[in-house]
């Protein structure tokens, strides 16, 4: 019988899978809404950086989670924004909730 997968590993796999889809949404939002919301391009960059961050690097994950919170104003979609923006911010909020909140060191 194989050992159960640790809960932290499962959670990591889940938010990484979510990020895989959010990478496309973030790129779309940056492309379409970048001219009126310059932060959109930075959000897309942070998502890409988060994807590339090693699973063990919790300090960087916590810092990027805080950065996403700042850039999105607490994950509140811009007034009058479209469904793609709402989907992106909702997804980022869920990912941020699964990330470490404080530096481990």
């Amino acid at each position: 019988m194989t050992a159960p997968i640790p809960a932290t590993a499962t959670a990591t796999a889940t938010w990484r899978e979510q990020l895989s889809a959010l990478r496309f949404l973030a790129a779309k939002v940056a492309r379409v809404h970048g001219p009126t919301h310059p932060d959109a391009a930075i959000i897309a960059q942070v998502v890409n950086t988060l994807i590339d961050t090693p699973a063990v690097d919790m300090d960087t994950q916590a810092a990027l989670s805080r950065r996403l919170d700042e850039l999105t104003g607490g994950f509140h979609p811009w007034p009058g924004s479209c469904g793609s923006v709402h989907q992106l911010f909702t997804g980022l909020k869920a990912v941020a909730a699964a990330l470490p909140k404080k530096s481990q060191s």
């Binding site: 899978e17 979510q18 990020l19 895989s20 889809a21 959010l22 990478r23 496309f24 949404l25 779309k28 479209c82 469904g83 793609s84 709402h86 989907q87 997804g91």
Partner: peptide, 13 residues
């Protein structure tokens, strides 16, 4: 909204 990207995400994973 978001379905296209979710499927692209699965394809990449």
């Amino acid at each position: 909204d978001g379905t296209h990207e979710r499927l692209l995400g699965i394809a990449d994973t």
